[in-house]
Design a protein around this nucleic acid. Structure first.
Lengths: 206, 206
DNA sequence: CATATCCGGAACTTAACAGTTCCGTATATG
DNA sequence: CATATACGGAACTGTTAAGTTCCGGATATG
């Protein structure tokens, strides 16, 4: 096991592979995706944005579809720690507590990414699943916690269709952003809560 | 002005141009758009579907973007005769009256077209305007009529945010179709009305 | 029935981009 | 400090589709 056979020379794989830049590339991919949509997105653009070589991108992801899938899947929302959500003691308080600039910006970015891939989603079940898990589900999960708490404390009737109520907020935001192309603001979100969601839950506004 | 100058020979423009096939081409464009999305749509595909030559398409529309814009703009909903809407005497009755297979199919097709162009819309204001006028506005207009009637007959309080209430239905349908990718059915639409829209309007279901 | 015009269709040109290969350089390892 | 490896970057290949041109045939007009 001494000299030849390159047992020492070849397997110098001390650095294995530098996955240091992966997050930057994925993040760049999301940026370009949000800005130009799936088909407008080129690998050159992504590589340039991440200050990486195109070859480096292909060393890690075998195709554009692969890269996009991974980028979407790795897109962690920054607010979805279900165990540390605000707990104000009322449904309205909890819902309002989520109306904050960071949360709004987060959701806007997600919507832009979503807009960039909607047309792909119909023909790519894997991507559809990733998008659902990363973009749709987290938001619903937060609302689900709030509604469950309200039910537990007897604030609302237990017979409510929680699943449906959870999608009212996201649906209104998505519609306004994607279809109406009006940016969401604090006022819109609060009136959503007071005029639609709470009445549907059998509550008055305040 | 007699013989030459081709005053007789050249301007044989008796048939001008055969715009007979325009609707078929536009309809084919919408089909392909709904099935494959903007970028997946090729002019060859559209021409083949309309049994027309590619050249014929370009004789009428100068570019793919042009064709798509026109196709979307010409997309008349089949139900939007605001003067002949069902009038049942109650808000719930009017809303429920719109829950019919043809209306559902119409809205599904519109949503598919919308899905095919969302990512373009952000970078093409003209297309955005056309899409809004053809896909978003008609639906809202119908609801607006129903709510105005309800206000006029004193069924609901006049202080309601009608604009917001008008988008609840479309928003829920769009969200379910585009994000959740679950087809809408009669039951979903009715529970939307009874559990969300009517309570938000200050009414009980039935 | 002669002819100008538009049709469908096929062949063509051009541009963009996915994916590959190559190279000179930086760096971590021994 | 020698070297293998992975890097960024540029050059290359192949394919796809936008847009153009050309042609033979149909049709309406006079």
């Amino acid at each position: 096991m001494t000299q030849t056979e390159q047992a020492e020379a070849r397997p110098r794989l001390g650095r294995k592979r530098d996955h240091t830049r992966d997050p930057e590339i994925l993040s760049a991919a999301l940026d370009v995706l949000a800005e130009t949509g799936y088909d407008g997105m080129t690998i050159d653009l992504v590589a340039a944005r991440a200050k990486a070589g195109k070859a480096t991108v292909y060393r890690r992801w075998s195709s554009k579809a692969d890269l996009v899938l991974d980028a979407v899947a790795c897109m962690k929302g920054n607010d979805l720690d279900l165990d540390h959500l605000p707990d104000t003691g009322t449904l309205r308080g909890d819902l309002i507590a989520m109306v904050k600039p960071p949360s709004i910006r987060d959701s806007e970015r997600k919507l832009k990414v979503m807009a960039g891939i909607v047309s792909m989603i119909a023909r790519n079940p894997e991507l559809a699943a990733a998008a659902h898990k990363a973009l749709v589900e987290p938001r619903a999960a937060v609302n689900r916690v709030f509604f469950q708490r309200a039910i537990d404390r007897g604030e609302v009737l237990p017979g409510l269709d929680v699943e449906k109520l959870c999608m009212v907020g996201p649906a209104m935001v998505a519609y306004r952003t994607l279809m109406l192309r009006i940016p969401v603001d604090r006022e819109f979100l609060i009136s959503n809560i007071d005029e639609i969601i709470l009445p549907a839950a059998g509550l008055r506004a305040a």
